[in-house]
């Protein structure tokens, strides 16, 4: 994963990026296409992890690149294009998050609190239920992790995802979230601790 980020970083050097921004400002379609190919997965992954809803994530990806098309003249160049895209994605996701929570708080809570009723597999060595095979279990862990992420406060979730999924450095995260590095660190720490506590049964099940 770190290697993937590195490859994106090395493929687009600094002056190359500046050149790209200049071309974007001139509404060069080829430049937009390049940016889209470069960052589509980053943006999509971030939105999926933040919202745990693939439809919403697709919508946000579209909004982000539309924003890139329309608002590229607002991009002052005081951060990298990647950081700017991350920021736009975060803002969009935060807005969706608010919107969604406000309207469907009851529904989302009731579904995520009782995973058993939803058909989730909850590992319990004491019971004699059949143990799923490795791939299914990995998918279950993935689902549970996403549900646990969804329960974190938005700022902690954003910090954890930027660090552990996107593999950004503390400085980059601080720049994106517009926060102090200490704040970012404590958000990451608290988020991870909560995820750890939440997924304890799954980890023990994986070790079996």
């Amino acid at each position: 994963m770190g290697e993937l980020t590195g490859s994106v970083g090395s493929r687009i050097g600094l002056h190359e990026a500046e050149d790209l921004v200049v071309r974007l400002r001139e509404h060069d379609e080829q430049a937009f296409s390049e940016v889209f190919q470069l960052y589509k997965d980053l943006v999509y992954t971030l939105s999926v992890k933040l919202l745990s809803d693939k439809t919403e994530a697709l919508d946000i990806t579209q909004e982000v690149f539309l924003t890139l098309f329309r608002k590229i003249h607002h991009f002052r160049g005081d951060c990298t294009l990647k950081t700017w895209l991350y920021r736009v994605t975060l803002n969009q996701a935060a807005n969706r998050n608010r919107w969604w929570r406000r309207r469907f708080l009851n529904q989302t809570e009731s579904l995520s609190v009782k995973p058993k009723e939803e058909g989730h597999f909850v590992p319990d060595p004491a019971s004699d239920q059949p143990w799923p095979d490795r791939a299914v279990y990995a998918a279950e862990i993935h689902k549970a992790l996403q549900a646990a992420l969804d329960e974190l406060p938005f700022d902690q979730r954003a910090a954890v995802v930027l660090r552990d999924v996107q593999g950004l450095s503390y400085e980059e995260i601080a720049e994106i979230l517009d926060a102090e590095i200490g704040t970012v660190k404590s958000r990451i720490a608290r988020g991870r601790e909560r995820l750890k506590d939440r997924l304890k049964p799954y980890r023990e099940g994986a070790a079996l």
């Binding site: 994963m1 889209f36 589509k40 990806t61 579209q62 954890v160 552990d164 995820l195 750890k196 997924l199």
Partner: peptide
Amino acid sequence: IKQSLAVREHLPVAAQEHIWTQV
């Protein structure tokens, strides 16, 4: 937790084309 989180999603190809057209 850190290892489990490090999974990238990939934008589906059909969605890519749709989004690009829409944009």
